[in-house]
Each structure stands twice: as structure tokens, then as C-alpha cells.
Write a protein that binds this DNA or RNA. Structure first.
Lengths: 218, 218, 218, 218
DNA sequence: GATGAATGAGTTTTCATTCAT
DNA sequence: GATGAATGAAAACTCATTCAT
């Protein structure tokens, strides 16, 4: 008789809302996005998420299994949304420089619209936890690959093995420049996305163009 | 067999030296640097630091007051060492491009020599905790300022207010490119610092040079 | 990919049969037997049982009321099946020693055929939870009573009160020997039931026979 | 600043007792013995142990690492104490039957003196958790080995391989008889240890003696 | 000047059980 | 007659931090 966990009849039965699973999932993901953005992975607690969502913790665990998986999901979702948006805009153009510009604008517009998620991605929070590393790297690499692809399309060549290594390094460096500029942007929100894009293009395009030429002829 | 952390008979009890305060501080800071680098801020525990140092925790608290302050100290120290080294090398040159190259090489050499500390600075770990943000930003800004200074010296002009804003943004973007490339480097340690420096110069110099010209004439 | 227990579209939704209550009960009991045997009382979860049975948890609660009652039912059923089988074989014989031998063989054969249930009965798992004690004792006592009965039949006498106490203790001891040997058997499954029976008879019969004589004459 | 764990100055500073590590360990072990005996492994909570001991949980974790290890320690300690006591008494005698009797009495006396611990060993509680299996088996096997040893000494022979297998099985069966009788004893505490020992000897000795003869001559 | 012993407050996670549909 | 959604309670374990010696 000892140690039985008792029935514990629900107390606030009056305000319990029953949402369809998918809807609840979506709601939780959005709230989690925001919470992680605010507090970082370690600072965020499942308790707080539950209370913000107005549900009990088991609901969350039923949906996502663990804090870590929830976090990974948030990050991946955001990363993918970003990539899609950038990709879509890029595909609309043909001229290399114009494409990069379009992509850049899309990038900053996305951040603008998703302030919270943005933080999750690569803000100053502990977003770069070991567990997050994989996802963060995914995103950066995705951007990097997108650029590589564009370059290949543009130059119509595939770089040599050696050139490939350099190219990878450079595109990652470029991705880093974008991230870092994003952080600066947070404190200068009055600057429009187009401005940021143009600045970066002026900074990076000369070098990139030359790089493409070099590698194409190599 | 019974105790978890053992009856704690300090292993080197026989040779436990009563170190002068400054020496002990230095020893602790070095160990902390390493520990944070290995485990990240959250992963590192004061218990482990104490045991690695062979002292009891109160000693650490006596020296640094709190984990957070200890962490901040570590980060700041490393950042300053980096800046100093870069600065020193830069000052040896006069030609702008050569200066940037010298600074870049110094930067990567520093990282190479301080693998651990490097991680503390901006690696994939949770180094970017909210609490760390300030320090991380400090470092980036310091780099950025160094660049601004160089540019000013080089062009012999002070940019307009507007130009100043853009310049700041750009130098931060550049700093981001360096950081990001550093992460890539971790997986390609065979690439020599000079190579990295040259790659980055090829990528960034054209844009930077143009930028300087523009702003100088503005 | 999102949900932990999936959107729970019952896999065999197409063929979910509305089973008559008794059939469903039986099905659930069998699955529960197996589950408890595999995981022990604490390790088994109602969730898993429900999912193995392809029904929702309320169905189970409707049938059995609580985990505890379900467990008790499982144990009792197995215990009764065992007793019946042993009893049946014993009744086929007349000579005391032969009867014991027949019962013993039946006992081990039952275990052999019900590996899972056996574990539920008195294996090394947590089967002996406080809540289980009653049932476990029931089984042991049932065996013990069976033996007492046999002895009475055999000697044709009813022992004195004092003798009765001793007899009870002894038959329980014997039951313990059987259980313990069963555990050993798990690691030596190649030994046939008859062998086990003979070994035990050689060990116990001399003492038992003498005991019967003593008590009969007392 | 968010998420700091704050100092939390001790509240009941007035009644905090500081015990030397070894003393605290011993105290905790004793309380744990009792608690596990009362509630079983699953039923016992570290919280309750802590509150019974008048310390906070971290103290316990500092000493034993985990609930499981604490449990294992309790069980092993008790098992070893039992074995020692039995062994000591046995060694005082030379005649085989007398030795067994002496050991049996020691066995029941130990149980009598350690009611709590006894339950931990093999009572009806969930003592036979998978995690406990190893320890329980250890104890039973230790008893079994002790018997084997005695028999070898007595008969002056080493049984054949085949005989060895049978012997092992039989000694385990005997151990089971002891355990089971112990449980019965709980409800008949008025019966003296000597009585129990004599009953068991009458039951088992004839078979055991014969077994020894057989195996010795084999 | 340093230590061993201790603590309060949280954290993630799991489960039996039940309501609303 | 059955289900999906939800819950309250608690359990094990960790950590930065500090007092008493």
C-alpha cells in the first residue's frame, strides 16, 4: 500500500484546453524558440516552458522526448526556414552579384522577422553548446554550400580538390561575416537590410569575384 | 571503496606548498582556462577545478569570488593576450596590406599555441553564454578597433560619422570571418597560419582597400 | 519524426476488432504476464502494455482498475495454473515417493513451458515487492498445503498442533528449495526436469519420510 | 544575470552537526539498511533517507554516488557479515553434522539480531531487483560454497565435474530452504534458532549425508 | 590560510491515472 | 465503448556556494 502514486484528480479542470496534437506541437515549438532565444539552452527550463504554454511538463515530454531534442528541433527548423528563404530569393536572379545581393537581403529580412529564432541560431547565448554545434555547423555549411553551388553555376567549373578546400574555408569565413554583422545589427536596428547587404557586397564581392576567376581557370 | 570523492587525503599532501597568493592565482587561472576550454562554462564544475588544482573550493572562492567572475577573468586575459600579440606584430610593419597580413598570421599563431584558450574565446562550446557575451564582444571590438586604427593611420583621415558606422560594422564582419575560419581550421589543422592569412587577405583586401579609399575621400 | 509516441495512428487500425470483453481481458492478461516477466513490476509501464496490446490505456483501466490489481491477477493466475498442473500429476500416483516425484516433474515442466510467467512468480526481478508478497506467499503456501495434504493422506493421520507447526515450516522450506533450484536451472537449462526432480528427491526424501513417520506416531 | 543559482545561506545553522566522514558514512549506511528493509529498493527514496538522517541529499550523494551503489553496499555489507558469522561458528566444530548445526544456528541468530538487514537480504520486498540479483546470488553462492567446502573437508575428496554440478545445485537448493524458512520465522518469532536449526537438520541431513557418500565414492 | 562537511534550490525526467470528446 | 490529450506528484541527481574548525 505504501508508495502508491495515487490518482491525483486534476484541479484546474475548468481551464484545460485540449488541442489537437499537431497544433499543440506547433505552439510548443514556437514558445520554445522564444524561450531558448531569451535564456539560452541552459538558462531555459522545461518548467518555464510548460508554464508559459499553460500545460504540464509531461505534455512536452510526450511531444519531444527530451530537452535536447526539443532544442535540436527548434534550431533545425529555424535553420531550414532561413535556408529556404535565402535559396528562393537567390534562384530568382541570374547575375552572380545580383544573386548574392538577393540572398543577403533575404537573409537579413529573415532575421528581422524572426528576432527570437535568430538568437537561437547564433546569437551570443550559449547557442554553441556542444550539442548545438552540429546544428550550428549544419546551418553555416548549408550557407556555404549554397554559395559554392552558386559559384559553380556561375563559373561553370568544378574546382580542383585543393581549390575546393580553400573555397570551403572561404565560404565559411563569409558566413561568419554575416553572423557577426547580424550581431552588430541588433544594436543598430535602424539600418535597413538592403544597406547591410550592400555594405557586405562591397566588402566581399571583389575578393569573391577574383576567387572565382582564379579557381575557374585553375 | 566507500567514499565517492575519497576521504580526500590530498594526494600530494606532503608537498602541498603554501604558495604566495599571486602564484596560486596564476596557477588557478591557467587550470581554469584549460577546464573551461575542455568543458565549457556550464560543463565545468568548481569541484573539478578544485580537485585539479589540489586545493579546496574555498580557496578558489577566496581568490575569485564566483564562478562567473573566474570565467570572465579567464576570457579577458586570453583576449588581451591575443590583442597584444596581434598588435605587436602589426606595429612592425608599415604597408597596410602587409600589416594586415602580419596581424592575421599573429592571430592564427596565437590560436595555434593556445588551443585551449581559443576554445574559451569563441569556439562551439557554450562560450557565448549571456554572461560571456560582454567579453566576447569586447574581443571582437578590440580587433575591430585595431583595424579602424590601422585604417585611420593608413589613410590619414578620420571618417565621417556615417562612414564611421559603416566602418565599425565592416570591421566586425571581418572579425567574424576570422572567427569562423578559426573553427574551420580546427578540422584542418594541417593548413599553416600563413596560408589562412593569405586566403583571407585575398578575400578581404580588395574590398577593404576600396572601402578605405571611399571613406578617405568622403 | 516529431512526436515521441507518434501521432498514434494505431498501426492495425484497419483490423482493430471490437473484441468481446472476455477475450480482450484474456489477451491483456497474457500480454501483461509477458511484460511483467520481462521488466518486473516497476519496470513495466502501462503505456507499454497498452501499446503492445494495441489499445488505449483507459481500456486497460476499465478491465483491471489499476496496475496493482492487474499484477495481482497475473500472479494469481499463474500460481493457480501451476498448482493445478502439479496437483493433477500427483493425483495420478499412489506411492508417496512417486507422488512427490511426479509433482516435482510437473513443477519443473510447468516452469519450462512458461518461462515468462515463471519469472513473474519468483525470479530475481523485483517480483517480491511488498504488494506481491501476499501472492508469492499464497503460492508457496499452496505448495506447502499440497504437501501436507499428501502426507496426511499417506500416513493416514493428522499431526498434533505442535507437529502441524513444524510441518508447515518444513514444507515451506521445501518450497524454498524448489524455487532456489529453479533459479539455478535458468543458467543450466540443459538439465532435464526429471533430473532436477531426482536430485531433489534424493536430497529431501529421506528427511521427509522420517518426518512423516515421526509425526504419524506422535 | 538570469539563471544564477544564488548563494542560499543555510537556514537551520543552529542544528547542523558536523560528523567526521567515516562516522557519517556509517550512520547513513545503517539508516539505509533499515529504510531499504522497510520500503524495498523502489519504495525507498533518497529524500526520506536524507530526512531521517537529518542531512541534505547531497551529503548522501557525496558519500555513495547513487542510490544503486548505496543499495549494493548495504546488501554486500550485510551478506558479508552473515557469512563471516556463520563461518566462524562452523570452524569451531569438526563433526560434519555438528558443523552444519552450528552454522545454522549462527545463521538464524544473525537474522534475529539484524531484523532490518535481513529483509534487505532476501525478504519479500523487491530485494530481487535485477540490480540486486548479483548481490543476492553472491550471498547464496557464498553459502553454497561454504557448504561445498565443508563437504570436501569432511569427505576428503573432490567430486567429479558432473558431481560438482549436482552438488552446486543442491547446495543452492539448501540455501533456498533456509531463506524460505526465515520468512516463515518472521511470523513465528517465538521459535528459537536452535529449534529451526534442528528441524532443518532433520529434514536435510539424511539426504546430504547420503549425497556426500555417493559423491565421495564416485 | 585552508579544509572538510554541509546545504538550498533547482534540473530533467517518468508514471499511473483520468477527463473530455 | 474507446481514444487522445492531459495531469499531479515525485524521484534521482547536480551545483555553486558557505560555515565551523
Amino acid at each position: 500500500m505504501i508508495g502508491m502514486r495515487g490518482p491525483t484528480p486534476p484541479v484546474n479542470a475548468h481551464r484545460r484546453k485540449r488541442l489537437p496534437r499537431a497544433v499543440r506541437s506547433e505552439q510548443l515549438l514556437k514558445l520554445a524558440d522564444r524561450l531558448f532565444a531569451e535564456r539560452g539552452f541552459h538558462g531555459a527550463s522545461m518548467d518555464e516552458l510548460a508554464s508559459r504554454a499553460g500545460v504540464s511538463k509531461p505534455v512536452i515530454y510526450d511531444h519531444f522526448g527530451s530537452k535536447e531534442r526539443l532544442f535540436a528541433l527548434c534550431v533545425r527548423r529555424t535553420g531550414e526556414a532561413l535556408a529556404e528563404q535565402v535559396d528562393a530569393e537567390v534562384r530568382k536572379e541570374t547575375d552572380p552579384r545580383t544573386r548574392l545581393r538577393a540572398g543577403s537581403i533575404a537573409y537579413f529580412r529573415f532575421l528581422q522577422g524572426q528576432l527570437q529564432a535568430w538568437a537561437v541560431l547564433f546569437a551570443e547565448e550559449e547557442a554553441r553548446d556542444a550539442r548545438f554545434a552540429a546544428e550550428a555547423a549544419r546551418i553555416r555549411h548549408r550557407q556555404s554550400e549554397l554559395m559554392l553551388e552558386l559559384m559553380a553555376e556561375t563559373t561553370g567549373t568544378t574546382p580542383s580538390h585543393q581549390g575546393r578546400e580553400r573555397l570551403e574555408a572561404m565560404t565559411l569565413a563569409v558566413a561568419g561575416a554575416y553572423e557577426s554583422l547580424s550581431l552588430w545589427w541588433r544594436e543598430h536596428p535602424e539600418v535597413p537590410p538592403e544597406q547591410l547587404a550592400d555594405w557586405l557586397l562591397d566588402l566581399l564581392w571583389p575578393g569573391l569575384e577574383q576567387l572565382m576567376t582564379q579557381l575557374a581557370s585553375a
